[in-house]
Design a protein around this nucleic acid. Structure first.
Length: 332
DNA sequence: AATACTGCCAACCGCGCCGTT
DNA sequence: GAACGGCGCGGTTGGCAGTAT
C-alpha cells in the first residue's frame, strides 16, 4: 500500500517563497508556535503550502539565529572532521554548528568544501605533507612494523589488496586515519581511523575514501550508497577489532608519524544510536560481523571530537576568497 | 551582445523512523 | 501487531546569477 500524500498536492503552492508568505509563516509561528503539527499549520496560518514546505522554510530560513553565508575555517574543520567520521549525516553535523542548517552544510560540502579538500589533497601530494597539517594523509610508503602484526591489518591491508571487480582505478584504503589530528588545547590529540574494506575483500559499496594516484579522493564515483535512506558512513562491512589490535595500529601510525599521541578512537561509522537502522546494514552484510562493538561511535565521541577542534593550530585550511556572502533570497 | 556553461542554493521528493490508535 | 499520521533526514532538482566564449 502506498503512502498517502502529506497534503493535497493540487491545492498547494510550490516553488520559491514570497516575502508575504514568509511574513505570514513567521508571524504565525512566533505567535502560536508550530503546535507540534506541521501538516495543519499552513491552513491555520492562511498559507497555501504543504506542511513540509512550511517546516523546511522555517527551519532553513526563517527561524531565529540562522546564519547564512561564509563558513569560517573552524566550521570547515568541524564539517570535515565529522564528515570523515560519520559521513553525510548532515543533521548531526549541523547540530554541532549553531545557526547552520543541515541544508546549508550539505550544499556547502557538495559545492565547495569537497572540491577544496580535493584540491588540497593534490597540493599535499605534490610536497610531502608535514605531520599534523593535512587531513588527508598519504598512504605510508613503508610497511608497518608491528611487534605482533595485528590480524586486522594482515587481513585488510590494501597494500596487497586486489579488488575483485573493476574499480575504475579507484582503490580502497583498508585502514586509514580519517581525519587530521586535532589539538584540543591540552596537548592531547584526537585521531580516528576507519576500516574501509569488507571482510569478504569486496570494496564497500558505501562511502570510502578511494585512492587514485596516491591521492585520497573525496566523494568519488565509487562512493555510492546503497543504504535505503542514503545515509552513508565509511563502514558498510564491519569486523570486530580488538582493543589490542587497535593499540598496535595506533603504534603503527604513531611510528609513521601519522598520529601524534594519546587518544586512539576507532570509528565504526554507522550502526549507532543516533538514528541509523541496523537492519538495513544487516541485509547488506550477510556474512560479516557487524556492530555491537564496544567501540561504536556515539554522540559523546563526536562532541569530544568537536571540542577537540577548538584551538586547533593546524594551518591546513586557508581562507577561501570565493566564500559566499550572505544575501537574502526572494523570488516573485 | 548573445549564447553556453558553471556554480550555487532554496526547495522538493521519497522514504525511514517513531509515536499513536 | 498492524495501520496510520507526522516528522525528520538525505539526495536530487530547478532555476537564478555569474562567468566564459
Amino acid at each position: 500500500m502506498g503512502r498517502a500524500p502529506c497534503c493535497d498536492k493540487a491545492n498547494v503552492k510550490k516553488g520559491p517563497w514570497s516575502p508575504e508568505e514568509d511574513a505570514k509563516l513567521k508571524e504565525f509561528i512566533e505567535k502560536y508556535g508550530t503546535g507540534g503539527n506541521w501538516i495543519a499549520l499552513p491552513q491555520k496560518a492562511g498559507l497555501k503550502r504543504c506542511g513540509k514546505s512550511c517546516r523546511l522554510r522555517w527551519l532553513n530560513y526563517l527561524r531565529p539565529n540562522i546564519r547564512h553565508g561564509e563558513f569560517s575555517d573552524a566550521e570547515d574543520r568541524v564539517i570535515c572532521t565529522l564528515y570523515a567520521n560519520i559521513g553525510s549525516r548532515w543533521s548531526i553535523i549541523a547540530a554541532q554548528l549553531p545557526g547552520r542548517t543541515d541544508n546549508d552544510i550539505k550544499n556547502y560540502w557538495n559545492t565547495k568544501l569537497k572540491k577544496k579538500l580535493m584540491a588540497m589533497a593534490v597540493t599535499s601530494n605534490q610536497r610531502k605533507p608535514p605531520p599534523f597539517q593535512s587531513p588527508l594523509q598519504a598512504i605510508p610508503s613503508q610497511s608497518p612494523t608491528f611487534s605482533s602484526a595485528p590480524p586486522l591489518y594482515r587481513e585488510f591491508s590494501s597494500y596487497n589488496y586486489t579488488p575483485s571487480k573493476s574499480l575504475t582505478g579507484l582503490e580502497p584504503l583498508s585502514i586509514t586515519p580519517n581525519l587530521w589530528n586535532t589539538n584540543n588545547g591540552n596537548n592531547s590529540f584526537v585521531t580516528s581511523y576507519s576500516v574501509l574494506q569488507s571482510p569478504e575483500g569486496l570494496v564497500s559499496p558505501m562511502q570510502y575514501y578511494p585512492v587514485k594516484d596516491n591521492l585520497l579522493m573525496f566523494g568519488g564515483t565509487e562512493a555510492s550508497c546503497s543504504s535505503s535512506d542514503g545515509s552513508c558512513s565509511q563502514i558498510s562491512y564491519g569486523k570486530e577489532i580488538k582493543q589490542e589490535d587497535m593499540g598496535a595500529l595506533h603504534s603503527y601510525y604513531l611510528s609513521n608519524g601519522l598520529v601524534e599521541n594519546q587518544k586512539f578512537m576507532l570509528d565504526y561509522g554507522s550502526n549507532n544510536e543516533v538514528g541509523d537502522h541496523p537492519s538495513a546494514w544487516t541485509d547488506q552484510n550477510p556474512n560479516g560481523y557487524f556492530g555491537n562493538s564496544q567501540l561504536q561511535y556515539d554522540l559523546e565521541q563526536v562532541k569530544q571530537l568537536i571540542s577537540s577542534t577548538n584551538g586547533c593550530n593546524n594551518s591546513f585550511f586557508f581562507s577561501d576568497e570565493n566564500k559566499t556572502q550572505e544575501r537574502p533570497m526572494y523570488y516573485h
